[in-house]
Design a protein around this nucleic acid. Structure first.
Lengths: 130, 130
DNA sequence: TTAAAATTTGTTATAATATAACACTATGTA
DNA sequence: TACATAGTGTTATATTATAACAAATTTTAA
């Protein structure tokens, strides 16, 4: 039987926590919340996070050092991420906009270089906070 | 006499260092390099960095926790930044592309929300590394 | 010019984020 | 089975960033 794309125990615990959260979670918040499940030390959390990011199950919000579950159905998108971030309430939403992805994926700079991966973070006020 | 847009002593020292660097500098690298000039502690560095970022003289590369001088002539652009990052040699270039800026500045999401600020980081291989 | 306000500085301590290194276990593959 | 790969548990430590307070400097405006 070939390798399933299943998560290991720690990966699953941490993914579940992030996935049911309505807001980005930080590594040490995650650590605190999974200690009752036996995950006791930072490296355990960071290793699971690294793997989940690599496989596109979660994304890192770089400007916040926090992690959100991918909400995008086709998660090739781990290489092409965009988020909106509210500067007031800190809410983060994943943007999945085919046009935007296409535009940025085919963007080439002045030297003609194209890039296989990007991360875009928009900042403003969400609907509630406006 | 009204306030000039001049930099304070520490801000100038730290800006000069970043400005003459060909690569993004990290806060503690900066600290190490300015100790001979009398800047001895992290808060002095971080305060200057914060101010320089606010005024658009430098930008923070979020995925690297590092800082580069703004190379864009019209530095209103501090609200609309884009960078290319080489995954091999770590080189970072600021992208100033009017079309790209315009496209992203006028982007509105599914709810019709527009965002006043964004940061975009492209990852790939630079010309040298290809 | 001079007093109040705002900004910048200097300093110590500590918080928050992240990884190195090592020994061991579990799982997948040939 | 036996080898390789991925995951786990653990301790210690490295890296990035801020809190809090006192003093000095610069700006503003009465």
């Amino acid at each position: 039987m070939h390798k399933e794309n299943n998560l290991s125990k720690n990966q699953q615990i941490i993914f579940d926590l992030i996935n049911k959260s309505s807001e980005p979670l930080k590594a040490y918040t995650i650590l605190f919340n999974v200690q009752k499940k036996g995950i006791k030390a930072p490296p355990q959390v960071y290793r699971a996070l690294d793997k989940l990011v690599q496989t596109g199950k979660i994304h890192k919000i770089e400007s916040k050092n926090a992690f959100v579950a991918c909400r995008s159905s086709s998660c090739e998108i781990s290489k092409a991420t965009a988020f909106s971030i509210c500067e007031s309430c800190e809410m983060v939403d994943e943007i999945s906009d085919a046009k935007l992805t296409k535009y940025l994926s085919s963007f080439s700079d002045k030297k003609g270089t194209k890039y296989k991966r990007f991360n875009l973070e928009f900042f403003g006020l969400c609907k509630k906070c406006k």
